[in-house]
Design a protein around this nucleic acid. Sequence first.
DNA 1: AGCAAGTGTTTTACTTGTAAAGTATATGAC
DNA 2: GTCATATACTTTACAAGTAAAACACTTGCT
Lengths: 167, 167
Amino acid sequence: MEDIVAQVMRQWQRVHPGLDTAPMAVIGRLNRCFLLIQQAADAPLREHGLTRSEFDILGALRRLDRELTPSQIARETFASGAAVTKRLRFLEERGLVARRPDDRDGRVSHLSLTGQGRTLIDRMLPEQVDYDASLLAGLAVERQRELAELLGELLLLLEGRPGVRAL
Amino acid sequence: MEDIVAQVMRQWQRVHPGLDTAPMAVIGRLNRCFLLIQQAADAPLREHGLTRSEFDILGALRRLDRELTPSQIARETFASGAAVTKRLRFLEERGLVARRPDDRDGRVSHLSLTGQGRTLIDRMLPEQVDYDASLLAGLAVERQRELAELLGELLLLLEGRPGVRAL
DNA sequence: AGCAAGTGTTTTACTTGTAAAGTATATGAC
DNA sequence: GTCATATACTTTACAAGTAAAACACTTGCT
């Protein structure tokens, strides 16, 4: 049986016989897997009234286990400053994060999880991981490991480019 | 050297020692690879004044090599009908696709590439494939093949779910 | 024929994200 | 001290997508 990307590659071969479609086999599939996974995995978040991006902010605050400034959050979650501003407003209004001014630098503020925020992320995270695991469940564990390793190689490569960096 | 997702996994391990972070190794990396690739690969499209989604419509018309209705385009490009309507308006205004009414069914129209549209996609496609190839170039060909195969397995699995289907 | 139900497409109202400009504060040269 | 420049963050104006409603037409039942 053939996946949708293999079908698309064959269609291209028919109209452009000379074309080397090999890169599509990786990148097309990666795109398609991403979209299907995202669609599936965002559903449980919606039930808690959060978008993926908001969840990522709570996650960053929890896993780094300390206060973060808006720009640190932007870097950690690979988001623009403007996007972080909006999300923090929402998370503050919902009482999930709290803001504290910096003592020395008036431009900066520090965000932390409230009790409620921490409770929420600690409930959601295992849910999310389990859900992710269920999406992969049809793949043998050894295949999952191979896939993780190959994606790690690729990611390291892509991170080497001009692109964004963490922390 | 460690990729960003491996770092995040270690951070989670520190604050939640019991947590099985293995699913993140696949899904987190897949997400991150997707975002970096998208960011990189969309740049050449912008130079031609197209978004990825508009490019996908031209691509579908080219590779299927026949007229398509808006709903066929929606299915082929995994987009909502509303999104397709907007994109077709833009592509028509730019003279890249042409619309023709159906003889028998007044609700339906048929879209085809104009000469200009076909010239554009035939120029862009090899560019895009080459660009994709360059993103993967740091990975040995054999590793690329393995990655494509594993992603194909995963994709087949994910397509089996309730989700969207092609053609 | 006439109407209920279904299908194909577009429109509307809204959400989310971005780039660029704007605001406020800090830093270093003089 | 004060000014130019840099930094941190927010606001604004806009782009692009969606879900649900609206619209237009077709189909099949009677």
